[in-house]
Design a protein around this nucleic acid. Structure first.
Lengths: 210, 210
DNA sequence: TCCAAAATACCTCTTTTGGGGTATTAGAGG
DNA sequence: CCTCTAATACCCCAAAAGAGGTATTTTGGA
């Protein structure tokens, strides 16, 4: 019997999944919490085989919760659950050590399979996102290097821009000349091949540098 | 026995709710579809007491589907189901004739109660949103999410901005005047209280509207 | 049918960007 | 010691953004 801990702020979803698995499935939802911090307590008190974790939760999100779990030394495989299929999230989750990734529009059969594979510490990718993951690992080098070319100062400037400041305000905050800020901005735009500040912020957020 | 039709693109959720209700609950999920158009077919063929409708679906969303149902003359009470608690969505759903509104983080007991009330054509508001609804009807549609004030066109403009286009380019893409684009941009900035396009994109991405 | 909101369009004006240069200084690394 | 990069700073200039108006048309809801 695979013992599942569900971490999800949507009670209905958790209750639904719990009632979905019968004894013949060899899977049982033994615990449920919407609170990332309570996960640690549950892990210390009970035997858990797989954590089914929702990505988007208020306060402490899925990745943060998983990071916390790993930091505390618990080695329980985590199956990430989400509505979104953004490569950004997938990347974040896998980077932090998630065992698998499944979408909320999966079928029961797919979830069952995902849980079984996860409990055996095998990776599971939901079909709908596997193409994106593949694309990502193929195109990784070029897109990431672009961001790596940025200096610390340049990234600092981008953060200030996202905060709504113009060159003059940034100059004052950093105690440098407005000319310097403009030079940094120009260099950033050229390095990332963007035409406007708006596009710059979009790219910076997509690549998670801010 | 209250017969339920679930309209939701998340299979897992639908399957979960279906298995959640036992015979003693006097509630049964008899049909399920992720396709708004198939709802009409199901309604014509089967007896349905309550429709449990997800708000956010691709292509035809919850409100559009409900509107379609009402237009075709079906008088089945609709219980709206959502993750978001935006006052704009609540307003839209109720305005179009939804009988109730429940969040996906409700408990089974709450859902049961909501379904029972809906089947009797009584209104149900999930506790977490009733405060907002109350505020709204008092005249204070206050400020929780400024994003709700944005029109569809305005959001479209923001997406183009994030794509690196300037006002002139956006005007060409949308076949409107550059003046109009600049007016939209000005209105957006005022509504969201941002000073630059960069800050606008940051906010829009944080709030996940783009 | 009538009202309100949204979308459309144009005006003027100042400030800021974005793009092109050039150049000095400090620090890291061969 | 020399080179390369990052950070600094300044010049010019055209284009765009931002901020203030006003006003018409379209559209959806009461």
């Amino acid at each position: 019997m695979i013992k599942i801990l569900i971490v999800d702020d949507h009670h209905l979803f958790a209750e639904g999944v719990k009632s979905m698995f019968k004894s013949e499935d060899n899977i049982e939802v033994t615990h449920y919490t919407a609170n990332g911090n309570e996960v640690l307590h549950l892990l210390s008190e009970h035997e858990i085989d797989v954590i089914l974790m929702d990505m988007s939760m208020p306060i402490l999100d899925g990745i943060a919760t998983m990071t916390l779990i790993k930091e505390k030394g618990y080695d329980v495989p985590v199956l990430m659950l989400t509505m979104h299929q953004s490569i950004k999230q997938v990347k974040g989750a896998l980077g932090k050590g998630a065992q698998g990734y499944i979408l909320k529009d999966a079928s029961k059969a797919e979830l069952k399979q995902a849980i079984e594979l996860t409990s055996q510490r095998k990776n599971y990718f939901h079909p709908k996102i596997s193409d994106q993951v593949f694309d990502y690992f193929r195109g990784k080098s070029s897109s990431k290097n672009e961001m790596n070319e940025l200096s610390e100062r340049e990234i600092e400037i981008i953060k200030y821009l996202a905060d709504g400041r113009n060159s003059k305000a940034i100059a004052k905050s950093l105690f440098i000349s407005e000319h310097t800020v403009k030079t940094h901005r120009r260099n950033i735009m050229h390095k990332l091949h963007v035409k406007t500040s708006a596009e710059l912020i979009k790219l910076a957020m997509d690549k998670e540098i801010i």
